[in-house]
Amino acid sequence: MHDIELRVNGHAERASVPAGMTLLEFLRDRLALTGAKEGCGIGECGACTVLLDRTPVTACLVLAVEADGLDVRTIEGEAADGELSALQRAFVDAGAVQCGFCTPGMIMSARALLLRSPHPSDEEIVEAIAGNLCRCTGYEAILAAIRAASGTGGEP
């Protein structure tokens, strides 16, 4: 067991975790933050994407102990004070959501993109979300949503 301290969506968390626990399991099973999903468990689908110190990672391939001392942001932290972020709003308005299973990971990848590049080019957008598989939408509406959210500020 390892004692870890980290921030999750701005809240300090302290926990004791086994070495083999992934960050995804920690978020879902310990903190009940079930927004991040498991679509494959091997880094291929991006459904589990969260931000670790502002950069997106696949939480299925990060150990919870590795997040010790770091800042984690999940989809649950995106709508600050219950207001949808401009990015979330854009996803709703552009019809970028169908079954919604890929959506939390997709939005976190897009969030990280807007943090590092507030006015991303189309090429940057594609590169940023190519690691997030979506079987429903054909991506077009998702690209449109991120384009629409471009320039809405790095922070939600």
């Binding site: 933050l33 927004g35 649950e76 995106e78 949808l84 979330q88 709703v92 919604g100 959506t103």
Partner: peptide
Amino acid sequence: VPRGDAVEKVTGSARYAHD
């Protein structure tokens, strides 16, 4: 008309059997 469930889905609060 946008989907009625989109807000739940973009906030991660939509619950699936997985959850």
